[in-house]
Design a protein around this nucleic acid. Structure first.
Length: 503
RNA sequence: CGGGGUGUAGCGCAGUCUGGUAGCGCGUCUGCCUUGGGCGCAGAAGGUCGUCGGUUCGAAUCCGGCCACCCCGACCA
């Protein structure tokens, strides 16, 4: 059928597809490169590594097992950190009476465009005033409970966290980074004094920073957000900001000092040591599945996903090599023994004994999926009592005696964790600049983090955003604050702030 | 919501200009073969060509409406 059809073509006819035939099969399977098109690389990587799919609901995504496994590891580690700092988990409803949001004027005004409203239920239109919103965040409904829970200063501090989904109607969704529905945790706490609440706000920001650096191997700048970047309803907002490989900034976590704003709206009061009624001081803080996007864009390369060992669902994959059952049998036995030993040392191990795929295919496949370490084991290795270990990030082959394999694998993973951090830090440092004039700010707009003096006014901030597409990220604690002159207006500035293109 | 683009097999695409009833690569399935960087050979399955309508003897192809998705802007963790 194919043939007769082809013959019907005029003799000079050559299907355009022929042009691509020079490409090898391997070329066709490759990802777009980061330098060619970063955003296409990202999308393709997410899909090909089977992390997530777009769903038929615009802006919503399906998180596939490979992607969800990453989130589960994020959850496992953070949940422990929260509990170690005295927090408890609870769960609050996904539907919030619309009237709750309206109680906080700034809160409702800023969230309104992003909120999905339930207008019909039980087969009927809900009357005005009895409608529900799907939570975009839970400060309001949680405060409703807190009001009942808190009676006395003895009930404080109240330290609650919830793992949940939230919904914010987004105009321009992007897998993991910005989806209409996303998974997150939101911590909500009540304190007796302003100082206590402020301390909690910074403590949790520090927890996020530690998590980002020690587990995600992602350097972050912790600091305070400006007025206009502040959370609606907070007194102060803090964030951790990371630099992706395309030099754009990504807000990876936030922590808010809420003051008494929500307490006053919901009358959350306690009887103090002085016998008088006082409003509680509150905080809230959260990180989301956006972290998975951050993880990908920080470490991955043109071959696929790279995951820091401390968050990797699979640490080692053992590839069995051999032609015949006679060859494969002993190799497989040895592989299983090795896997058992590796597992005993705390690693997650996969053995690939699929005979229908060649080793080369498997190497590429596990690189795409981000398995940290590949162990190759074949007949030649058995003769020498060795195996081949290859780190995902540098892909250098090492021949290791089987007797040392467990120790070596663990050491390599530990080194990989460190190297990933160092590499990410080097990227950030070499793309962070002090700029001292508007022209320089403009010239370097695409170049990374720009430390500039700013007069502190929302007007100037907006002008820079409108004209250059740069937003303030935060005022990092680690950045020494010395007075200077605003690069736009020349007015006095208390210190430099980070400007960058942002996700 | 504005500007641009794309809808054809599971995925990536050609075919549309010039109408004649659908093809390529990858993947999948079967058999043989192969295994240290995406093996090879042979065979097979798989598509109401986004959707609705119009023109025509005849529409993936021409005309009109609608829908969806992607990219760029406004919003954002």
């Amino acid at each position: 059928m194919t043939r007769s059809c082809a013959l019907r073509r005029p003799p000079w006819y050559a299907p355009p597809a022929m042009a691509d035939d020079k490409k090898t099969k391997a070329d066709n399977l490759k990802l777009p490169t980061r330098t060619e098109n970063f955003s296409e690389w990202y999308i393709e990587l997410v899909k090909r590594a089977k992390l997530a799919d777009n769903s038929d609901v615009r802006g919503s995504m399906v998180i596939r097992p490979n992607g969800y496994a990453l989130w589960e590891n994020v959850q496992r580690v953070l949940d422990k950190m929260f509990k170690d700092t005295g927090h408890q988990n609870a769960y609050f409803p996904v539907l919030i009476p619309e009237s709750y949001l309206a109680k906080e004027k700034k809160h409702v005004a800023d969230f309104a465009p992003q909120v999905a409203v339930v207008t019909h239920a039980g087969g009927k239109a809900l009357p005005e005033g009895e409608r529900y919103v799907i939570r975009p965040t839970s400060e309001t409904i949680i405060n409703r409970s807190f009001t009942n829970w808190v009676q006395s200063y003895r009930d404080l501090p109240l330290l609650i966290n919830q793992w949940a989904n939230v919904m914010r109607w987004e105009m321009r969704p992007r897998l993991f980074l910005r989806t209409t529905e996303f998974l997150w945790q939101e911590g909500h706490t009540c304190h007796e004094t302003e100082a206590d609440a402020q301390a909690e706000t910074l403590k949790m920001l520090e927890v996020y920073k530690t998590f980002a650096q020690d587990f995600m191997a992602m350097p972050v700048l912790a600091g305070q957000k400006t007025e206009s970047e502040k959370f609606p309803g907070a007194d102060r907002t803090y964030s951790i900001e990371a630099m992706m490989q395309d030099k754009k900034a990504l807000q990876a976590g936030t922590s808010h000092m809420l003051g008494q704003n929500f307490a006053k709206m919901f009358d959350t009061q306690f009887q103090g040591r002085d016998g008088q009624k006082h409003y509680v001081w509150q905080t809230s803080w959260g990180v989301s599945t956006r972290l998975i996007g951050a993880l990908i864009m920080t470490h991955s390369d043109d071959a696929g996903l790279v995951v820091p060992p401390k968050l990797a669902p699979t640490h080692v994959v053992i590839i069995i090599i051999g032609r015949t059952p006679e060859e494969r049998g002993p190799v497989k036995a040895k592989a299983e023994a090795l896997a058992a030993d590796l597992r005993k040392s705390g690693l997650s191990v996969l053995i690939d004994d699929d005979e229908t795929k060649g080793p080369g295919f498997k190497y590429a496949e596990y690189e795409l999926r981000g398995v940290c370490l590949r162990a190759e084991l074949g007949p030649k290795d058995l003769e020498k009592s060795q195996c081949v270990l290859v780190r995902r990030d540098d892909r250098k082959k090492e021949f290791v005696p089987l007797a040392d394999a467990v120790t070596k694998a663990n050491a390599m993973l530990e080194q990989m964790q460190k190297d990933l951090y160092a590499k990410a830090l080097a990227l950030r440092d070499s793309n962070t600049f002090e700029v001292n004039s508007y022209d320089e700010l403009k010239a370097k707009a695409e170049d990374g983090f720009l430390l500039a003096h700013w007069d502190g006014t929302p007007e100037t901030e907006k002008r820079i955003k409108d004209e250059l597409g740069l937003t303030t990220r935060n005022r990092p604690f680690e950045l020494k604050q010395e007075p200077g002159k605003c690069v736009v207006t020349g007015n006095p500035s208390a210190g430099r702030i980070v400007f960058a293109k942002a996700y």
